[in-house]
């Protein structure tokens, strides 16, 4: 059993990393690990309500985000400074999140066994 944290920093859709950062949770959920995710820098946009990727012909995130919890990723943290810098507020997000300041994010990272960046 390991404490594994996915640290998402890339913007959605421009590259595949944000998508893979979700895929990985769905697989890791089948194993006995303690999972959590952080969204910071441009990745805060991955959580935004109202994303419509149909014109791009790619799968969006809005079906996956609400089930992260069912796959064992119960804690979703958002970096406060990244969110505010981009003009976002907590009610812009499609799922409930815990907003944390820089020191808080640093502290929870320190508690992990493994950090996987996406």
């Amino acid at each position: 059993m390991a404490k594994i944290m996915f640290v998402n920093r890339n913007a959605p859709h421009g590259t595949i990393y944000a998508w893979e950062g979700l895929e990985v949770v769905l697989i890791f959920g089948a194993y006995e690990n303690e999972l959590s995710a952080v969204y910071m820098d441009d990745a805060v946009f991955s959580l935004k309500k109202g994303q419509d990727t149909s014109a791009l012909g790619i799968k969006g995130f809005l079906q996956t985000l609400p089930v992260l919890e069912d796959y064992g990723c119960e804690k979703i943290y958002v970096d406060k400074e990244s969110m505010e810098k981009r003009g976002l507020k907590t009610d812009d997000f499609a799922i409930p999140v815990e907003v944390m300041d820089s020191a808080g994010i640093g502290k929870i990272m320190e508690e992990q066994d493994v950090i996987l960046p996406f």
Binding site: E23, Y31, E32, D113, L116
Partner: peptide
């Protein structure tokens, strides 16, 4: 599969990306 990555994360003492 990605399950292998999960196992690496459980078994290794350090994981570097």
């Amino acid at each position: 599969g990605l399950g292998q990555l999960s196992e690496i994360c459980t078994e290794a003492e350090r994981v570097v990306t």
